[in-house]
């Protein structure tokens, strides 16, 4: 069984935000409009966090893409009363929209604030709905949604490999954010396979996990931006 993981190289990431839009495009995430956005209802399964360091003129800016970290020890899972949030065999934190009754407890428990709630039924001004990806569920009002590591692409690739009676190749599965990243800052793959690109990056001395001390054991490794004198 695989264990899906990601590595984000902060030395490559330049903060352009392509992953954000790629994710919207792939995963049928609706835009909420200005009024709702101003009320904190914008949904971005992946976001590029930016932090200032220092003051003018010795100022630096750090970017960090943050998506659901698909924790091994995920705080969102035990708190859900209906198993809408649960752990799959291949290490994904599944969000099963059917089962979600909207307690939003998972989102409170998530230290990364990676979960987003549908405050209203998602809507698209016609004919923008023609773009919707039929491989991804349309969520409705009252459910929680979040980054799935593009599970539809994972399942699609697995199916393809099984049809062709072969093993999955490293790098064959690319979530939308990984696929769209021009700087190749994001790498996705199987952490169980010690030879996979993502495994090698996960072992990098530059690597660390986000909020490691909360004990969530995330599947995303961040490779620190190197400093130059």
């Amino acid at each position: 069984m695989a264990r899906w993981g990601m590595a984000a190289d902060l030395d490559r990431c330049n903060g352009c935000g392509a992953c954000v839009v790629a994710c919207h495009s792939e995963n049928n995430i609706s835009t909420v409009g200005d009024e709702q956005a101003s009320r904190g209802r914008a949904k971005h399964w992946i976001r590029v966090e930016r932090y200032w360091e220092g003051d003018f003129p010795d100022v630096r800016l750090k970017f960090r893409p943050v998506m659901c970290q698909q924790c091994d020890n995920a705080p969102c899972e035990p708190v859900c009363p209906t198993y809408a949030s649960h752990h799959t065999e291949d290490g994904l934190n599944a969000q099963v929209y059917n089962r979600c009754i909207g307690t939003r407890y998972c989102a409170n428990a998530c230290p990364y604030n990676a979960r987003f709630f549908d405050f209203f039924n998602p809507s698209w001004d016609k004919p923008l709905q023609l773009q919707l990806n039929p491989d991804v569920s349309l969520r409705e009002v009252g459910v929680m949604e979040k980054c799935t590591f593009c599970v539809q692409r994972i399942r699609g690739a697995q199916l393809q490999a099984r049809t062709e009676d072969r093993a999955l190749r490293d790098g064959e599965i690319q979530p939308a954010c990984v696929q769209g990243c021009a700087a190749k800052a994001l790498v996705f793959g199987d952490l169980e396979d010690p030879e996979s690109h993502v495994s090698r990056l996960a072992r990098s001395p530059r690597g660390s996990k986000l909020l490691e001390d909360v004990g969530t054991q995330p599947a995303v490794t961040y490779l620190a931006r190197a400093t130059q004198v």
Partner: peptide, 23 residues
């Protein structure tokens, strides 16, 4: 219907990537 735009892998400019605007 077109459903998603991705950077063409073999293209010498985009090399598989695409910016937010292109997406």
């Amino acid at each position: 219907a077109a459903k998603k735009l991705e950077g063409a892998a073999g293209h010498p400019i985009s090399q598989g990537g695409l910016c937010a605007r292109g997406q």
